[in-house]
Design a protein around this nucleic acid. Structure first.
Lengths: 534, 534
DNA sequence: ACGTACACGTGAATC
DNA sequence: TGATTCACGTGTACG
């Protein structure tokens, strides 16, 4: 084992590597004289740190190629320092000892480089043919024949796969917007200057280049004659495969951005620079579902409107309420607004302190729009409707203290927090009763207007809870769900059509429910008449 | 260069390989005696063709490991044939010559195998530490110590990443439906019987196993002592990375199928067994666009229907408006609400940052009730009415972000702060125009209902500003005062009765007024009908 | 045999 | 620094 041995292990680490010298793409073999590196912009040689150049020189010297170092990596001067290679050799003077430690570090000692290689057409077709040739490395005494040996490989750069075989990349502008434009970033300097940060990469690059050179040399030396014909077809297949895969990836990514373009810009998917494909998929699904639900809802509304219009022409205006009520009842499952009532929360303490130490309690309503954010159901509408419902049903018992809303973000619907100040007779315990009383009252009133199945159903339940009103407070211990519907022009106030949940066990959930109860309010906002004014 | 040389190149081909021995997953190191191969079902050794076994034996003999061939690959008999290896060696008797031809064939000579390796916990952590150790290959005379050397690696199989570290795969059922279920297919026989087709894969598998073994041996031999501690953390990172990547892929694929589930089953996406992710994306985009177009179309139809319906009802209730409007006009001097519009305030910055860096601006409205706090004009009512006015006059151009109210204290009337987020077309500059336009429109409408002195006065001023609407933006530089009145039941929208201030000098106050303008809105809230319900 | 599609592990970049 | 995402080349399966 001589010094060529570790270079050899070296080269092998690249040879079978994932992104090794086999199929790289960025720094292509220029047809001109600067082999492997083109002098476009201030290319790699400007980014190669002095340390890297040491290694390059070291390696090239090991490869006996230092007679033409300038031609190898773009004219960088060879200064003969051997710091890192020597560092790799310390601890053991055995050659393969040092070699064995090379790829062990995941971040700095892996010599693969996806960004530098021959053009695939040339290097893959020929270097791939003899990928493990370096394992033997029987001829370390390589001279400047290397460029000469690469010369016959260059004709393979001719594109043969449509515009995707701009892979030689000498034809691709660095900022080209066409296919495979993503690969153009490997052409220029890897980053804006940022000196000293690309040393490892440059090292890998250099190693890859040198390994490739070594390959090519061996190829041209003595084994080229026999492997060029036998192994060329599989190499071409590999190349084709790689190109196809690139094409496929590009198509997939384009589809991703195309899909993202049609999604509503309501989420942080759009605000982040990175695309996060999973979020795109999830949001696309949500959006599709929301669109479908909205569409069905609108379809139903449309159908009801048409029916209403048809009936309007026939009979008098007495049926207006009837149809309007039934129209609403049919939509009560949609436009759900979930209102969570939390009494005496931590956030309410500040508001209460600001309002003075009265004997009133604060009650926070967390209003979350469960319907997808749409034009007809914006946060303003929901807040407006909620306030109206509160005003209608509680009256002066509660007064608004503070409010905050958060726009829809991250797929979550917009939220609104209302902090109310309840009057003495409106403590949370009695608030619930107030709700129920309001419901019953409006029920009684609504019954005079329209009677539907759901109304009757609720009335049965309301009667059921009414008998609890006498002594027990069981109803406070359970969550109640109610639906309130109303129209602006409907002076008969909200018509509660859905009933409360059946009373559960009264003792266990009592403490919890005293602090938090959830009420579902179906709030249909009819702003059409108002909006038409603007 | 002896015979170990090409095995050595061999091993390197796997060592730096993509799916090499480093992080494979399917055939895990069983804690029992059969190292690398578990005897679940009719595992690999039953699928290993005789030819493959030849190669295995050949290689194992080269590795001087044929003293325990049964233990290595599951008890398959060693028959000593060397067909393929010898085939690889024909044409040249040089060892590295043959080695160099190995990975050149794309379909049959690549020795990577994603499906066979140690369990990641064991092999990655320790084999990765010395990946290129085989390059030296100083000790080809390996004996049955190999299994012994792997024994200490097995404790690393303990899962440490939730259920995803079922990677040892001895815990994963082959048909499990949970996470990473995809990897379970590598456990069983690679295919349903299909004899003779999996020879290449088996060969790769065997090569990978042998390379791994070689690694492990070398690891345990002499280099283990020095690399185990220094390179163990990167190995753990590598494993973590691999697991994270698997998790990410799984999530992405789940999102794909979830998205596919909501797509209409009308296309070939559903008929093909393969998923074709690109088609999913494209079809999702098409579906979203079709849904959107359908939705807008239906919305327009709905709007037309409702307009038709409203026009039909309007004729029936004309008298109501007339009487209500005159009733209002007599009270217009009372219940004044002053609304101060401040755009781009400091307090709005936080709210804007929370809502994301959209191109929208925030606009703070300070609503102060100038009337003494009375029962009929509580803060809730004012906020309600103000929101309603905003909704009527701006529509969807503004959405409520935050709000805070302060109760009446110290003789000061109650105040309310509304923070709005304005859409792009609702910048303060155009907001002002919107206000004015709204005023003009509602003015024109209010004139048909009731005519008062203040109305006429405003109208004169409105005409004065109307001519500015054409070209100049002078009106943006001045403060405007307007009063809006409305009733809930008044579908004719708010009637603006107060006029704008006389236009002052346009240049001096321009910068100030661009940031702050005050609008006086007289908001009469008529909650009597609603309140009487409670 | 050929083309397409997917999963995989890994390096690099970003947060 | 650690976690997460993406691009990449490759192996493999399917038509």
């Amino acid at each position: 084992m001589d010094s060529s041995s570790w270079i050899h292990g070296y080269t092998n680490a690249n040879a079978a590597g994932n992104n090794g010298f086999m199929c790289g793409y960025s720094a292509s073999c220029s047809p001109a004289g600067e082999y492997y590196f083109q002098d476009r912009e201030q290319q790699q040689q400007l980014l190669v740190s002095s340390q890297m150049q040491h290694h390059l020189n070291q390696i090239s010297m090991h490869m006996s190629m230092d007679d033409e170092p300038a031609a190898v990596y773009g004219g960088a001067p060879s200064n003969g320092a051997r710091s890192m290679v020597d560092d790799l050799l310390i601890g053991s003077s055995s050659a393969h000892h040092a070699a064995s430690s090379f790829p062990s570090s995941s971040s700095s000692s892996s010599f693969r480089s996806p960004s530098v290689s021959c053009s695939p057409e040339s290097c893959v077709a020929h270097v791939l043919a003899v990928p493990a040739a370096a394992t033997g490395f029987q001829y370390p005494e390589v001279s400047s024949q290397a460029p000469l040996c690469l010369a016959p490989l260059l004709p393979y750069e001719a594109p043969q796969h449509g515009h995707y075989t701009g892979l030689p990349l000498t034809e691709l502008p660095a900022t080209g917007g066409g296919a495979f434009r993503r690969y153009a970033r490997h052409l220029g300097p890897r980053r804006p200057p940022k000196p000293g940060a690309c040393g490892q990469r440059m090292f890998k690059t250099a190693m890859s280049v040198l390994a490739k050179m070594n390959m090519a040399m061996k190829c041209s030396r003595q084994y080229y004659y026999q492997q060029a014909v036998s192994a060329a077809p599989p190499a071409g297949n590999q190349l084709q495969h790689m190109i196809s895969e690139r094409k496929r990836r590009e198509k997939l990514n384009d589809s991703f951005v195309a899909l993202k373009a049609v999604l509503p810009p309501g989420s942080k998917v759009w605000y982040s620079t990175r695309t996060n494909k999973t979020s795109i998929l999830i949001r696309a699904r949500e959006y599709v579902k929301s669109l479908e639900s909205k569409l069905s809802e609108l379809e139903e509304k449309n159908r009801a409107l048409e029916a209403q219009l048809a009936s309007r022409t026939a009979v008098a205006k007495d049926e207006d309420y009837e149809t309007a009520a039934t129209d609403q009842a049919s939509e009560k499952a949609q436009d759900l607004v979930e209102i969570e009532v939390t009494s005496g929360g931590a956030g309410a303490a500040a508001a209460e302190a600001e309002a003075g130490e009265e004997s009133t309690e604060t009650c926070t309503l967390n209003v979350a729009v469960t319907t997808p954010p749409s034009r007809a159901m914006s946060t303003t509408d929901v807040v407006l409707r909620t306030l109206q419902c509160l005003r209608e049903q509680i009256g002066d018992g509660a007064s608004l203290v503070a409010m905050s809303t958060s726009a829809a973000s991250g797929g979550r619907p917009p939220r609104a927090n209302l902090t109310l100040q309840l009057k003495e007779e409106m403590r949370p315990k009695s608030l619930h009763e107030t709700w129920r009383r309001t419901i019953v009252m409006t029920m009684a009133e609504a019954r005079t207007v329209a009677t539907t199945a759901s109304l009757d159903e609720y009335y049965d339940r309301a009667n059921c809870t009414e008998e609890e009103e006498d002594g027990t407070t069981v109803d406070d211990a359970e969550e109640k769900r109610m639906t309130a519907e109303g129209r602006w022009e409907d002076k008969a106030a909200a018509k509660v059509v859905a009933g409360a949940l059946p009373p559960g066990p009264s003792s266990d959930a009592a403490a919890l429910a005293l602090q938090r109860r959830t009420i579902i309010i179906t709030s249909r906002c009819c702003f059409e008449e108002v909006s038409s004014v603007v």
